[in-house]
Write a protein that binds this DNA or RNA. Structure first.
Lengths: 226, 226
DNA sequence: ACCTGAACACCGTTCAAGT
DNA sequence: ACCTGAACACCGTTCAAGT
């Protein structure tokens, strides 16, 4: 029984922080937020749950590291060629698409205030605001507005993905259900919610996102003109 | 041993959905997000964990109902007297302050897409945008921008509160720590993050929040002028 | 130094049994 | 109709013991 030629459950490469993060991302992508557990992870890595703690501090460290890997490859090096407004739009859209692909990043980012993935995003946005000649003391409020908007959208998308997954129905079905409920609200109490429910199932999240970014950029431009 | 005169653990009033929600809010306020468990809740209500399931569907239902109670009393009836822009600012600031008092509402709201608390917020914002004479097809994008910004800030505040609670340090200490880390980042890679770290510990969250709302409102006003 | 895996102290949820 | 509380199927995390 010793030295059998194939021992498939035995891992070949040694356990590293990077391999753990890579496996976590795969698990999160495949099974959603709830899919990352130390048991599932250690099984996939052919080790015991305790081994992981040698390389990472705890689950929150793991989530932050996993989201940082996505954010780092999404933002990449700063795009120096583009005009600042276009660069901001590109940064924002990059994040939107990344979180569309990996919804769990939305909630992970939000739960890691002041951590590296957040710093990357703030840096990317802040540089472009400097390039836009936004006055020094208006830079942080503007970055904060863009950041908060991006995080808000990300969190909502993560929640939508989570609901869709746990209820086993896709996005369109879920939106249609919500639209139906909203359409049946009391017309006196909820006139606005009723009126927009109609346009709900066939509307474009990504377009709404761009519109939001552009609204903030317009506000910024209006300020500079004064 | 039977019929002792004082049986303090026996509850007086019958279990209702409202009493469960009220007790949940108290628990969340006192102990933070992690403080609401079915065991702690049933102990406080002098009942068994199973009893709660007769009145509420599951934990997500409970969180949504708890946050809805806060949102409902925060938004209240629409303030008809005020000018629309002032009314929007009032709605947003009301939410900011409510979530400052009950940080868990920030994450609960985000995890309840399409649910009642969200509808209330959307309705409050949407009405004022109609009153602002924003064209029909620009109303939803504007509501979405305001909503996402508010949710983004709420989520960040919830995360800050959670970190502060679990690490047992207050907000200022936490921010000072983050500022120190950021100040030591590589000057070539993170010039912007380094430069704002200085202003971090003594800056006003609420002012940043108002600035963000105003930026979106300015953007909206700029659009209308065209 | 790095890994193992049983054990601990929790969770949310269910359900037979009671009133 | 409403409540009880034990039991189930999980969690994240620790730690003595191994190599």
């Amino acid at each position: 029984m010793t030295k059998t030629s194939r021992v498939p459950q035995r891992r070949e490469e040694s356990l590293t922080r990077d391999r753990i993060i890579e496996a976590s991302i795969a698990l999160l992508d495949e099974r959603g937020e709830g899919g990352l557990t130390f048991r599932a992870l250690s099984e996939r890595l052919a080790t015991g749950p305790g081994a992981i703690y040698w390389h990472i501090a705890d689950k929150s460290d793991l989530m932050t590291a996993a989201s940082d890997a996505i954010v780092a490859r999404t933002l990449g090096p700063p795009a120096d060629g583009a005009r600042p407004e276009a660069a901001i739009r590109a940064v924002a859209l990059g994040m939107f698409d990344a979180i569309d692909d990996h919804p769990w990043v939305g909630s992970a980012l939000m739960r890691a205030p002041g951590q590296l993935p957040m710093v990357r995003l703030i840096e990317s946005l802040g540089r472009q605001l400097r390039a836009l000649d936004v006055p020094e003391d208006a830079q942080w409020p503007a970055v904060f507005a863009l950041l908060s908007f991006i995080l808000g959208v990300s969190g909502q998308n993560a929640a939508n993905a989570h609901v869709a997954r746990t209820r086993g129905l896709d996005r369109t079905v879920f939106l249609t259900d919500v639209a139906t409920v909203w359409s049946n609200l009391d017309p006196n109490d909820y006139p606005f919610a009723r009126s927009i429910a109609r346009h709900f199932p066939d509307h474009d999240d990504r377009a709404d996102f761009v519109a939001g970014i552009d609204l903030i950029l317009s506000g910024l431009a209006a300020r500079r003109r004064r």
